[in-house]
Amino acid sequence: MFAGNLAGDPLFGPVTAEAIRTGFDTMLRLPPRESAVLTVEDLAGGTVIGMVDYRDLDPYAGVATIGVTIGEREFWGRGHGSDALRLLMGHLFGAYGLNRLELDTWSGNERAVRAFTRLGFREEGRRRSAVLVQGKRYDRVLFGMLREEWESPA
């Protein structure tokens, strides 16, 4: 499945194929009104190269947390993650009528920070020195986007 990577979320970490299957089986049973995991495919070859997800969807507050992982290194930097997030954002702001989406990454994941910013997310804060990767500490960077920012990008 996905190769381990240091550009993504270090909390995802190296996992076994069995752990991935168990995790997906569990996630597929979750009610889609609360959370879902969707695969990201390379359209040219139909290969699964990653996933996007949403979780902690609160229909009353109009908020959800989203995430993206492109696990296959050869597909990094080609816009697949941004495209997948854009589609997910449109679905959540549109079909679910949410007011706010949020996500986070670690400060060492500079590609994600740039991609989230290009998509219109704003950095809203940091949890200083909250992530440990290969013995080095990084900040957890928090991002948010409001419906009106999505509807009328700057």
Rank of each mutant, 00 (worst) to 15 (best):
F2A: 11
A3I: 05
A7N: 13
G8F: 08
G8E: 06
L11H: 09
G13I: 00
G13P: 10
V15W: 05
A17D: 05
A17K: 03
A19K: 02
I20K: 01
T22E: 08
T22V: 07
D25S: 00
M27N: 00
L28G: 01
L28S: 01
L28F: 02
L30C: 04
P31N: 15
P32G: 09
V40C: 05
E41H: 09
D42S: 04
G46Y: 01
G50Y: 11
D53V: 04
D53L: 06
R55K: 07
Y60R: 15
Y60C: 09
Y60G: 15
V63S: 12
T65R: 13
R73E: 08
F75N: 04
W76G: 03
A84H: 04
L85I: 11
L88C: 09
H91G: 09
A95C: 04
Y96N: 15
G97E: 10
N99V: 00
R100I: 04
L101T: 11
D104M: 12
S107T: 12
E110T: 15
A112F: 11
R114G: 03
R118W: 09
R118D: 15
L119F: 08
L119D: 13
R122N: 12
R126C: 08
A130R: 05
V133R: 10
K136T: 11
D139C: 09
V141W: 06
L142K: 10
F143K: 06
M145W: 08
L146Y: 12
R147L: 15
E148Y: 13
E148M: 05
E148Q: 14
E149A: 13
W150G: 15
W150C: 14
W150L: 13
S152V: 07
A154I: 00
